[in-house]
Design a protein around this nucleic acid. Structure first.
Lengths: 317, 317
DNA sequence: GCGTCATATAGATAATTACCTATAGTAATC
DNA sequence: GATTACTATAGGTAATTATCTATATGACGC
């Protein structure tokens, strides 16, 4: 038997013939002419190298080899029906896998979206990669992931972006700081204080530094800490001031005060970035659809900035 | 996805590509050129309607859809490998089914052959149809069975025959019958006795009657019984004489005597008949091969008349 | 930046396939 | 034994496939 010349079409035809016990009937069901079906059977029989059917009192019955071929054909066609279902689920975004690369700060808020999404799509595997801005840029360059979350995206020549959340950066001080009661503060009043800063390569630090540069200011003493958490705790403990994403603060923060510094908060938006030179998995697209539809339910209204519908529309072109 | 355009060849190629992670390497393994393989992949991908492979750090890796297609392909190709094994067994006669139609008398001896055969080929299904000559002729006309056992076969225009066993018909009487001690008896001395006969349509009866006709004799009183067993028991009980196949008598038969009638025993041979207008199942042919090789071990030497080798040779043409 | 891989695309061709129509041959039916 | 329904065969055609060679394109290492 030479498997090489077997076609799925041939098996389909064969199955119909065996089921109906008649070449003519099969031809009718398949919208073919009878000679066509006869000929296909002949080809199939040649590929197998055995007679498959024989006439017995007016009905075509499979031979021994034919009976087993019928079984094999049913199984094989069934397997590919399953595969078609799988593809369907894949295309619908109900199934599959994708990965998201996040800048550190975004990890405080993305789970709000991913939690409900995973509930709704339990068959999708999501992989999260978290790091600072510089690390995420490297991943982006290497095309490691399907989705990226940045506040200030890199060049978008090969990518599309869609904002989804406000990311205001505020100046924080320990509760009870002398300036905390003031109505308005100018940044240069704070330059004498020690500032706790993230490492170079962090997005938050980058944004703060470019803000300072725009305003012609430069910091006094600083202290570097590699995580938002550490900084938040450090500020609460009176180690100094800091500029942090509001998302980093817990809903209640009795030991930390937000200072009303002029020209603050620094406004920025998180956005999903999608490379255009890499095929977006259906599941990732499904996630964006989900995010677009359910963002309102997942985050506080004051942070809402949902422009994902436009991103989705752009993707479809 | 359109299953209709899927070829097993396409899946074979695809599997090799996924396994080797390289189009060029797959081409080498398949003795094809690289563009050929590329094109096949393209076709396959079009049939599926999804990208199947993508480059990742110098290696071709399957996408989600591709991974599942690989699984499906392996299963499906494996299923047909199994089918090929099955065919192999079928062709070797190790597997399958066939039917034999027997005249009644032969049922005393055929199990000697079928027993060892079934031991040797446990995966072959044998169906036995037993009846008198007339019934077997009908089955033969209708082409109901794969093998037939006759002593006097019907027309052989559409069939081949091969003798395998002597079938001597002898005159039997109850032990202690007055003539049992004689050295030779003429049949006409017995015509006054009552003869127990099989029904019309029986081969034994037919042979006996044509023997009588040839010798210009006719029977006196008769009594008809539809089975050899019944006749044997009847003779032992003194109901009369009979002509029976020697095979019908058990090896030891203290209550029955074989009379040394002149021109007896009537010689005939059982033979296997194979229709030429019906494909002989491999298993049936395997049985004939087995019979040809093992007949000597299965029956008493004095009955041996094995011409099956010639039949097998004729079959191969 | 320049070879060296590998892959993709283009263009060509012989073989095969998927159908068809027309017709001949067979088997069941009455 | 004529009718009818079915299957097989022959012959034809457009489409598709399998394969090649030649060439363009792209990524990777030094």
């Amino acid at each position: 038997m030479n498997v090489r010349h077997l076609t799925f079409r041939l098996l389909q035809v064969y199955v119909v013939v065996v089921r109906s016990g008649s070449v003519s009937e099969a031809a009718r069901q398949l919208h073919l002419t009878q000679p066509t079906v006869s000929q296909q059977l002949k080809r199939l029989s040649e590929a197998v190298g055995e007679p498959l059917l024989h006439m017995r009192r007016g009905r075509l019955l499979p031979t021994e080899a034919g009976r087993e071929l019928y079984r094999a054909s049913r199984e094989v066609l069934g397997r590919f029906d399953d595969y078609r279902d799988y593809l369907e689920a894949l295309r619908g975004g109900e199934r599959g896998r994708f990965s998201i690369a996040l800048v550190n700060t975004a990890q405080y808020v993305l789970p709000r979206l991913l939690g409900p999404y995973s509930q709704a799509f339990p068959d999708v595997d999501v992989t999260l990669h978290i790091g600072n801005r510089r690390q995420m840029l490297t991943r982006f360059e290497r095309q490691d992931d399907d989705l990226y979350v940045f506040s200030h995206p890199p060049s978008l020549v090969h990518a599309l972006a869609g904002r989804f959340l406000r990311n205001p950066l505020v100046v924080v001080a320990p509760q009870g700081h002398p300036l905390a009661k003031r109505e308005a503060i100018a940044m240069n009043e704070l330059l004498g204080e020690r500032f706790l800063l993230r490492e170079p390569g962090s997005a938050t630090r980058m944004m703060f530094e470019s803000w300072l540069q725009e305003h012609g200011l430069s910091l006094g003493p600083t202290l570097q800490m590699a995580s938002n958490e550490a900084i938040r705790v450090g500020v609460a403990a009176g180690m100094g001031l800091a500029v942090l994403s509001e998302h980093v603060l817990p809903p209640e923060h009795p030991d930390i005060a937000i200072l009303p510094v002029t020209d603050f908060p620094i406004e920025s938006h998180w956005q999903f970035i999608v490379r255009r030179d890499r095929r977006l998995p259906h599941a990732a697209q499904g996630f964006l659809r989900f995010a677009s539809g359910h963002l309102g339910e997942c985050v506080q209204p004051r942070f809402l900035a949902n422009e994902l519908a436009r991103l989705l529309a752009d993707l479809d072109q």
